[in-house]
Simulated scan of single mutants.
Amino acid sequence: MTQSGYVAIVGRPNVGKSTLMNRILGQKLSITSRKPQTTRHQIIGIWSEGEQQVVYVDTPGLHSEQHRAINRVMNQAARSSLHDVDAVIFVVDARRWTEEDERVLEQLETVNKPVILLVNKVDLVPDKEELFPLLEKLAAKREFHELVPASARKGRNTERLTELVAELMPESEFHFDAEQLTDRPVKFLFAEMIREKVMRITGQELPYSSAVEIEAWDESEPGLIRIAAALLVERTGQKAILIGHKGNLLKEIGTQARLDMEKLMGCKVFLQLWVKVKSNWCDDERALRSLGYRENE
C-alpha cells in the first residue's frame, strides 16, 4: 500500500526553511537569499520514492511585523499551512532562540499532528559542546515527535529527517504524479528566480518593496522561450538602484536568472527585463492578488 501526505515546514524568517526543502528534493525549487522574508508564498515540493510520497509545504517565515498588507498576507499563508497536514517540521537556528521562535511555538499549540523540531545550522556553531544544553532546553519546550540537529546547507542529517517524515505519512494513494516536482506553474517559478536575483544582487540597498510580474511569454520557436518581465518597485529612487550604472545591475539580474531558467527547462531562454514604479503596491490588496499573493493559499 502506498503512503502519501502533507508536511508543513514552518519557522521564523531566515532559519533555512527553503534551503531545507531544496536539499530534500535534490533540486532548487524555493528561492533563497540571506535576507529574511525571501519566501513570500506557500510553495509545495513533491518528494516521491518507491511507495512513498511526501508533499512538503515551504512557508513564509512567521514574523511580528504586520503593519503592511503584504506582511499580513505572508503571515496568513504561513498559518494556513498548519491546517490539514499530517506532520509539521519546526525549523529553528541552532545559534539562537528568539521571541519570534516563541511565537511560532505558540502557533503550534493547536496542532495535534506530530511536530519534528529541526535544529538547523549546527555547522555554524563553533563549539559543538554548546549544542547539548541547547537541545535539552528546546526539548523541554513541548513534546516533539523527535528533535533533529542538522545542516540543510551541507545536507547533514537531512536524510534522517526524510526517513522520519516518510514514516509518519498515512496510507493513501499518491496526491500527485510521481514525476511531478511542484504544483506551481513554470511562469511562477521563473518570476521567483528573477526575484531571488534581485534580493541577492542588490544586497541591503533595496528594501523588500520589489516584485516581479511576467508580462509576456512565447514558446512558438522550438527550443526557445521568450519572456518579458517587469520588476515592480514603489519609488523612483528604487528604480535607479535596480537599473544600476548604465543598466549594469539589471543586466546582471537578467543574466543570472536566465541561466537558472535554462537549467530548469533544458532549453534556451531569451529574457527581457524592465523596471516599473507602482506606488504602494505592498499595501494594495488588488495588486497583491494580481501578483499571486493569496491569504488562504
Rank of each mutant, 00 (worst) to 15 (best):
I243H: 05
R235K: 15
P222Q: 10
E262A: 12
I227C: 05
H245P: 03
K268R: 15
G237R: 10
G247F: 03
K246E: 15
G247N: 00
E234R: 04
E234Q: 11
T255P: 01
T236N: 15
S220F: 06
Q256A: 13
G266K: 08
Q238P: 07
A257Q: 05
A257H: 05
A240N: 13
D218N: 13
E262D: 02
L231T: 02
L264K: 06
G237D: 11
E262C: 04
E262F: 07
G244D: 02
I225T: 15
P222M: 06
I241P: 06
T255D: 13
A228L: 06
G254S: 11
P222N: 08
I214H: 01
L249I: 01
I225R: 11
G266W: 10
L242T: 08
K239T: 09
P222D: 14
K239Q: 15
H245D: 07
I227T: 08
C267M: 14
R235Q: 13
K268A: 15
K268F: 11
Q238F: 10
A257G: 05
G266F: 01
L250H: 09
I227H: 02
R258A: 12
K268M: 12
L259Q: 12
A240F: 12
A257T: 08
G223I: 11
L242W: 11
T255A: 09
I243R: 09
Q238R: 03
D260K: 03
A230L: 03
L231K: 06
A230E: 11
L264P: 02
Q256I: 12
E215L: 07
G254L: 03
D218R: 06
L264I: 00
L264R: 10
A216G: 02
